[in-house]
Simulated assay, not measured.
Amino acid sequence: MALRALHTDLLKMAIDEPALLECWGPIEDATNLEWFRKHVYANLIVSHWQLMWEVDVLSAPHLEALADQFFKGQVGRRFWAEARGPRRKAETSRRARRFTAIVDRRYLLAVAAGPAMNEPAAAVPITGPESLPGREAVKGRATVFAVGVVLGAAAVLAGRRRGRDACPPASRGR
């Protein structure tokens, strides 16, 4: 779990500081900084799903629903088109390969269903509390808190599963 948190922190640093993005090596259309940041963020989303999948708190139907929503948009489709090959090659466990196969199947179904939904034509200006000074600091703390909550919950669930697996067979189910 600590390795995943470190990976997330490294990616978040690169998203927050665009000059660091090039340290990750080229991604398709690497000259487009906006796309590069979206690609890295989409990777965080899919990696989060995979973490939940690996600790057995995300079911196949729920993963399919998440992927279906993700692939309605252009960003999700473009990300997976670029990442699917490397992810499929990198998976070493049967569970990880199943995760990737489910996501890939939902991607292929989305592409076969027709074009992605268009992105908003124009950004809506930010007003209200979002535009106040210190917004970045609050947002950063909220992100760290959210990542901590997810990782903490995953650790608790993994611990429960280990405890359940440690029970002698005769005491299970009673």
Rank of each mutant, 00 (worst) to 15 (best):
E22T: 13
S93T: 15
L6N: 10
A142P: 05
P61N: 00
E54D: 11
V138Q: 08
L157M: 14
G163Y: 07
V156S: 07
E54Q: 03
S131D: 08
S47Y: 07
P26M: 14
W24C: 09
A19D: 13
A113Q: 04
E22W: 08
G25I: 06
A30L: 04
E119P: 03
L3G: 09
A5R: 13
V124F: 07
T143S: 12
G163N: 09
V150S: 08
V103L: 09
W24G: 12
H48C: 09
L10I: 12
A14M: 13
L3H: 10
G152K: 03
H39G: 04
D104I: 02
P26L: 13
A112C: 04
K38H: 13
F79G: 02
T92K: 14
A30H: 13
T100F: 00
D9F: 10
P18E: 06
V124A: 12
V57D: 04
A110Y: 02
T143Y: 15
W35L: 03
S59L: 05
A2D: 15
A81R: 12
A122M: 13
V156P: 07
R135C: 05
E136F: 09
L51V: 06
A65Q: 08
S59D: 06
A158N: 06
A153D: 09
R88C: 01
E82G: 06
A19K: 10
V111S: 01
F71P: 00
V57A: 03
R98I: 04
A153N: 11
